[in-house]
């Protein structure tokens, strides 16, 4: 072995050892357990707080309204489609109020006239002409939309 390599060899060994020691301390726990990532981060993502309760949860208290809703055209709707996230409301017994939308824009999101919408999929009205100025829920019950209010 040439003498210059002999002198360099300890330097290389020190560098490699230093690298291995640093790697040992800088690599987070569970990194590389299942792949090139921190395995424990999966569990961290799973711990995210839920906000939407799901229709079954609403049904536990409001079964009368859910039963009405499920009778016909609005059956596919989840309560939280219109009322917003409800898990806090469901778990804290009325402390957190849910949204009760009444404005025309809410109904218009689905029911305003738009050629992009399939007429088979949804009933559409011209929101600018159809009783403009009045609230949709003045005449229509959103939980039983086939009934007109008096």
């Amino acid at each position: 072995m040439p003498p210059q390599l002999k002198r360099l060899l300890p330097a290389f060994i020190i560098f490699i050892l230093l690298f291995l020691i640093l790697k040992h301390f800088l690599t987070p726990e569970t990194f590389g357990e299942k792949g090139h990532y921190r395995y424990s981060s999966i569990a961290e993502v799973q711990q995210t707080q839920m906000k939407y309760a799901g229709k079954d949860k609403c049904n536990e208290c409001h079964d009368d309204i859910v039963e009405n809703l499920d009778m016909d055209v609005h059956a596919g709707l989840s309560c939280e489609t219109c009322h917003g996230p409800g898990l806090m409301h469901a778990e804290n017994d009325g402390e957190y109020e849910i949204i009760i939308p009444s404005e025309r824009e809410m109904c218009a999101l689905c029911h305003s006239m738009n050629v992009s919408r399939s007429t088979r999929e949804i009933v559409q009205v011209n929101i600018l002409e159809h009783n403009s100025g009045k609230k949709c829920i003045d005449c229509h019950n959103p939980h039983m939309p086939w009934e007109l209010k008096e």
Binding site: G76, T81, C110, E121
Partner: peptide, 9 residues
């Protein structure tokens, strides 16, 4: 959440 609220499935 997106599937939960989708009105048309």
């Amino acid at each position: 959440a997106c599937i939960e609220v989708c009105p048309t499935g």
